[in-house]
Design a protein around this nucleic acid. Structure first.
Lengths: 212, 212, 212, 212
DNA sequence: AATGAATGAGGGTTCATTCAT
DNA sequence: TATGAATGAACCCTCATTCAT
């Protein structure tokens, strides 16, 4: 008796599946769901079209796996956060910074989210795993707010959903819409300093939003 | 007020062009640029494929026209705003409410913006008209801030771009990402009351962000 | 005002459609529905794949058109029959000879019927036209039988359906199953004399089946 | 009676091979040779694709095995027939009834024959076993005819091949073409009484065909 | 101004089959 | 004996686009 994935062949298989998934993240991220080509993915994965169907069944199911993957990755990163609730204001700053950094460093997370929303969440709806992955959306934020409230720093009537949406909005939009924004604002949003400034601004803003 | 061209034939032509443009807005809005089908557009416009090429030259040029159209429409709506600068705080609330309402009532504006950003602004970049339409992004916001500053209500070190991004972020994200958010938050974002509550929240937040 | 299909372009279009249909008859006849390749058909028709979809919509609809075509052709041939009811026995011989000859000269009629039956009549069921073409199956046979009965030559208790099935069976099977029969019988069914002998045999048999 | 091989492993192997063969009969019968999928067969056999190649070598060789199998089964059933030649007319009725019943109860025999004929007997031609199985086609019929002739009941100039084809035609066509016939005749050929009536009719007809 | 006819490239997907253990 | 992994060819079909009136 042995675990599912020992043996040279099985390990190679895992690697193949993984290569396809990672290639799919890249391609869907750049081209969207409709624009992403199966052949492009299989080539990038150094595999062939057939294997995508072997492992994932269809383009749609592959995309669903991609969705699950990027959410799981985000959750994993979040789980590594060690936030000291002793200083709730600093804790909030750290959470905002984490989310902001994650979006900046993982543009594929932003674009795939955007793609999925353009498709009206139709793939997310079909995923069982995704539902399991959620529910934790406000898991890190809640204790911070509660700690701040306990210390009398934050307001007592804060709607946790509003707080979450506030942070997400401020981190997401800058990244998701930077291309059209560049046409409309006379600022280079890709500039390092501009990004740093924005992080300071939204951290302050978030605090102002929660403080008494 | 008069039609662009005179003569029955010319009017019919204008109408055909218009039908196509409006159909394109709908289709691209729902299906994205890659997913939007020429045939679907021409059918919806009660015309035929060939006419799209006759009037717009290519799918890409049609999409650019769509971009120009939705921006022009937004500008038109904004131009009708009559905001009293006598009460800068109230003025800001009204601007936030206007943008929020516009996004809510024009989901195609949001989705087409998202689509264009997924394509990294490649169409917007090709439009001359679009560049002319821009530059006015902060045109309404600036006098409000200046009025507030003059009255000592708003801080003096406000970065106008930050202020603009703040408002846009808070109005856009809720609408653009509502499908995936629904999976992750235990709230129905489509609910009327939820929307009204959010508007109150972001109006307050915007003020907190600008006040001394 | 002009009829639908005048004009050089329109005539060419008709020809294209016709070429495809005739190529489809040949290919489906030889390869069956599943085995028949779209590309093979379009190549044989000196057209291209796309036109098949332009004119017929799908492989299945093309096959349905083929079914309608071969039935219509059979009906047309049958309609040209001029059978003298004055001699009912001779009339029956002529009908049997007609059906036999038609099957011999139109092997595609036999194979496409066989194909459709292997598919359990699923295409025929979808055709409205086909239902209209039927109903006339026993149209030629009935007056012959009635004439024979009027003259006291044929039995009065003949079931017209049985009579029809009898003739069809005897004409069809020899043609449809000649390949496997060749393996089992020590006779060359393709031989001209063998065919002539069989026609004599089944004509006699049909008469024996109807006579008093 | 004993299994072909001894030893647990060997028996299991026989069972696997048998499962595949029976699954293949079902699938090819329903889908034809081209339409029958290797995977469908292996799934139905609760085995896997690779085993089909292990035991049969290729899809084509599997189909040949299926052909041999259904012919052998028919021969086996025929071999069990105990026909009393003392009453040649009754003997003929019994033979017709046997063939008719076999076709009715073994639709897969009919459809696989039809499939093989659509493929112009190309598989049958490749089978050595099949040639051995044949030659016996008229083996049961011949003594009946000879007995009838000896008693002066049947004509002396009967062509045994014609007699055989007559019976086969009348039994086969009703079953093979029932789907298209249903569209053309206002009769439900699947009806039990309709089948019984047809058997009476063709038994009588066969006798009329052979009698003096 | 308007439109049926035509096209070539490529889309996702499935096929029978072989490899490697 | 048995089976997961892998493959290349080809399948049906759709795409944006141009031709020819």
């Amino acid at each position: 008796m042995q675990t599912r994935k020992t043996g040279v062949r099985a390990q190679q298989a895992d690697r193949t599946r993984d290569n396809i998934l990672k290639a799919a993240v890249k391609v869907f991220s750049k081209e969207g769901f409709t624009g992403g080509r199966i052949e492009q993915i299989s080539t990038l994965a150094k595999s062939n079209d057939r294997m995508i169907y072997y492992y994932f069944g269809s383009k749609e199911k592959l995309f669903i796996s991609v969705l699950e993957h990027i959410y799981a990755s985000f959750n994993q990163a979040e789980a590594k956060l060690r936030i000291d609730l002793g200083d709730p204001e600093q804790a909030l700053r750290e959470l905002v910074a984490f989310i902001w950094d994650y979006y900046v460093r993982h543009p594929e997370f932003v674009t795939i989210l955007a793609t999925e929303n353009l498709h009206q969440g139709q793939h997310a709806r079909k995923s069982q795993n995704l539902k399991a992955l959620s529910g934790e959306a406000v898991g890190v934020l809640r204790p911070i707010i509660e700690a701040g409230q306990a210390k009398g720093l934050f307001r007592d009537d804060i709607d946790i959903t509003h707080a979450y949406l506030m942070i997400a909005s401020l981190c997401y939009f800058y990244n998701s819409n930077r291309h059209t924004l560049s046409s409309f604002l006379a600022v280079d949003l890709a500039d390092k300093q501009a990004k740093a400034d924005w992080l300071v601004f939204i951290s302050d803003l978030a605090l102002r939003g929660l403080r008494r």
